[in-house]
Design a protein around this nucleic acid. Structure first.
Lengths: 300, 300
DNA sequence: TCGAATTTGTGCGTATGTATC
DNA sequence: GGATACATACGCACAAATTCG
């Protein structure tokens, strides 16, 4: 199977495997071959069996013409009327096909103008590197300046009662007082990140760091601020998922209601005691959270 | 401002702060101002003058009846026929309204049976901890067993030419041969994670690890497999964002087209040389990627 | 076992509104 | 203003899957 640069399709070979913990004792692949036939109908990258659904075919056709370079970023794809003629289908069908590309982020429709191929997006990098806490200054400002953007942020603190979710994450009782701080971060005036932070008021009450963005330790990050009151943050947990934006989030980030956002639920711990938790989110198509992790550490 | 447990609203105080680093004079910030104005007119969250769209109204009505408890998880929402009668609209309109709830993950449609309200999900934890690579065995299997789920996965490898994106991530030339492997992970038979991995064929050609899921080193993870051919993986980069599922992804994960997925783009490095890259994704409402990071490491 | 009723999925052709050029 | 293009909507038809008597 030797080839250097060329890759004729006749030399393409597919390899199928299936594993479960049930047969972990045997490293062999005897049973895998049997199921491969069944699999090939399920997950082939280009198995394409079937569904003669016209709107899917049209969407596939458009997607190929985009990735193939025939339809270029910034250019317009054929109009509904032309696609209707070309494929000989009803207008509702081509409309549905185009809407698929829209949800996939490949195309943007402008009413009265046309449907345009979007340029491949360069997402803003929001660093979550394991060493970001060690350095001084604001990680966000550093990220933005490294990418040629002007960083800014505004905050808003208020004392509230802990909801059930916040209480669970901070290991306190529901209704306990917590300091809630909303951060909205902007790059070149455009909002790119929003965070809502919660700190148990019982922990910071009467200390100089009770208000996260006030006093001499404002903006120093949780690790440094907690150190001021003798609390040593040992580790943090970050759980990343995604959903549609709520009304408040959409307003702060200047996006539409329901637009896809990446959600990061972060909790700081001091020896298994949670000392701060936050919901950090950014538009899914405009920013990404970047982790850089070493491989040579010993586990706990 | 002393209170212990009670928090009357009369004692609530708001604290507002704003910070920026605009002092750093940068060329080009002026043009960004202009575009930001345009932005705010485009995507105002509630500036819209109530387009009274019927399909949105119907979707809102259904959403309210679900969150209000009138329509309970596991139960069926009214059929298309009933909704058309009730709202006096065409069938295509109620169909579209329901499809909105489907992409929001609130409802699941079963052809011939009905549209059912989905139960609120507890997200599966997919560990990305910094130490996961150190241990033997499969991290996914460990995660699932810790959560009482039966893990399994299937894979499919094929040689392909590198796309522009893959080429950039692997620091090779576009069109160079790469080994492409699709992984579909299941927990209790339900797909929860999908990964598409790319390895430069120039790196593994003729070695025992050319096929990731074949031979004595199958399923051992990139770090261990690369060690076999004398390549020491030093660190990895993971960038997390979110978008709507494509057709292939939706099919493999058994979700609907356009449902929100969390996307993790991972690259393994051996001293700044990329040796593997992958797109890992999971349904945004069914799983979350969890990082646990220590605070006491020294930065690079 | 079978078949009819129900329900969702897909598709057609047309009409109207609205934004852009 | 007129032509073009997208957005929404109507009403109907048929196919596929399910349900249930």
């Amino acid at each position: 199977m030797g080839f250097s640069t060329s890759l004729p399709s006749s030399e393409c070979v597919d390899y199928w495997y299936e594993r479960s913990q049930l047969d972990v004792s045997r490293p062999g692949s005897l049973s895998h071959r049997e199921s491969s036939v069944k699999l090939s109908t399920q997950i082939g990258p280009e198995s394409e069996t079937t569904p003669d659904h016209k709107y899917l075919q049209i969407a596939d056709d458009l997607r190929r013409r985009i990735s193939g370079g025939e339809l270029r970023p910034g250019g317009r794809i054929p109009s509904r009327a032309e696609l209707t003629r070309r494929h000989g289908v009803a207008s509702a069908i081509v409309s549905r096909a185009v809407s698929i590309l829209v949800t996939e982020g490949l195309v943007e429709c402008r009413q009265g103008s046309g449907a345009y191929v979007l340029p491949p997006k360069t997402r803003l990098q929001l660093s979550r590197a394991w060493y970001r806490e060690v350095r001084g200054g604001s990680p966000f400002a550093g990220d933005m300046e490294a990418q040629g953007k002007a960083p800014a942020w505004r905050t808003h603190s208020r004392m509230v009662h802990a909801t059930a979710d916040v209480a669970r994450r901070l290991a306190i009782a529901e209704g306990d007082p917590v300091m809630r701080t909303v951060y909205v971060y902007t790059a070149d005036e455009a909002p790119v990140q929003r965070a809502v932070s919660y700190e148990p008021y019982a922990l910071t009450q009467g200390t100089p760091i009770a208000l996260p963005e006030d006093g001499p330790h404002a903006g120093r990050g949780v690790r440094d601020r907690m150190a001021v009151i003798g609390v040593t943050v040992t580790h943090r947990s970050e759980a990343v998922s995604a959903r549609g934006a709520t009304i408040e989030e959409a307003r702060d980030l200047r996006i539409s209601l329901g637009v896809i956002v990446t959600v990061l639920r972060r909790t700081y711990f001091a020896d298994d005691l949670p000392v701060e938790t936050a919901d950090i989110l950014a538009p899914g198509d405009a920013a990404e959270f970047v982790y850089v992790l070493p491989m040579d550490q010993a586990g706990p």
